[in-house]
């Protein structure tokens, strides 16, 4: 489908233009989601998109689905109620690195542990953009943020490992540059039965790039292109070539009992006992 048709079909055009800065890659991630939804043929009326607070979370206002713009960090918790109360809905959560892994980190690990059928898309730009450039749990060590004027002292989260360790049954990482695989991961995540998480590496030229002298938006996109390697290729690379490289790809794909199905199973079992 052409871009203009996608916009017409899935965006709330009255709410455009969006609030994102020139060069921001949140638009690419949002478009990729819409392409994935279109290719999967999801019913807009049966799809709910939930977000928290932050730049990425503003996406829901532009998307023509059932949308909920919730409180900071709590999107997964709201989404859990939406899904469990009405299992026929497809529930997708859009969250940022701060929203999902700092203030909402507890909900991330527990939604993963529960293996509830939600798809979490973390648009990770390694910075708090909405509040003006403070470091987040994914800002690299020693990088600059307005609240880390001498460099971040902490070590960053690896969101893929975090989600995997917490029990997510589908985990992938893509980037705003590698769009075709990104769309594929979004599709696989939405189709996966259980808790799925896709981290999307995004760029924030305004607040991350400027503070850290990462160059223009185009230069930052080039950095994504040059430094991210598909995991299967990375595994075959000699050690010396891995220096400075990051990986994207699908990391976890497994079947485990899904929370809502398990719960509905209990309801049906109890009903059976009552009828018997």
């Amino acid at each position: 489908m052409r871009s203009s048709q996608l916009v017409e079909k899935y965006f709330r055009t009255k709410n455009l233009p969006h609030i994102w800065c020139p060069g921001c890659s949140l638009g690419i991630a949002t478009r990729s989601l819409v392409v994935a939804i279109d290719e999967l043929g999801l019913d807009k009326n049966k799809t709910v998109i939930v977000s928290g607070i932050g730049c990425s979370s503003r996406a829901v206002g532009y998307l023509d689905f059932n949308t909920i713009h919730t409180t900071h960090g709590r999107a997964l918790a709201f989404a859990t109620g939406v899904k469990l109360a009405n299992p026929e809905l497809h529930v997708i959560v859009i969250s940022g690195d701060g929203d999902a892994s700092a203030i909402g980190g507890n909900h991330l690990i527990h939604a993963a542990r529960r293996n509830i059928d939600l798809t979490l898309l973390i648009f990770n730009n390694n910075i708090y953009g909405m509040t003006g450039g403070q470091f987040s749990p994914t800002t690299p060590h020693a990088a600059l943020g307005t609240t880390a004027p001498f460099g971040v002292v902490e070590q960053p989260f690896d969101l893929v490992k975090l989600a995997e360790g917490a029990g997510a049954t589908y985990v992938a990482r893509g980037t705003a540059f590698h769009v075709n695989p990104l769309v594929k991961y979004y599709k696989n995540a939405i189709e996966h039965k259980g808790f799925s998480m896709v981290e999307t590496i995004c760029i924030c030229p305004t607040y991350y790039g400027r503070q850290n002298k990462s160059g223009t938006a185009v230069q930052m996109m080039h950095w994504l292109k040059d430094s991210f390697v598909l995991n299967t290729a990375y595994d075959k690379m000699p050690e010396e070539k891995r220096q400075g490289k990051h990986v994207y790809g699908e990391f976890v794909k497994k079947d485990l009992p899904e929370y809502v199905e398990e719960y509905v199973g209990i309801i049906e079992r109890l009903k059976g006992e009552e009828d018997a």
Partner: peptide, 22 residues
């Protein structure tokens, strides 16, 4: 449906989500 959430905050958040679900 009953769900024991991971904390008090998600306890109310999920209930709001379910109410939005109708």
């Amino acid at each position: 449906k009953f769900i024991q959430m991971e904390d008090e905050i998600s306890g109310i958040a999920a209930a709001i989500g379910a109410s939005i679900s109708g």
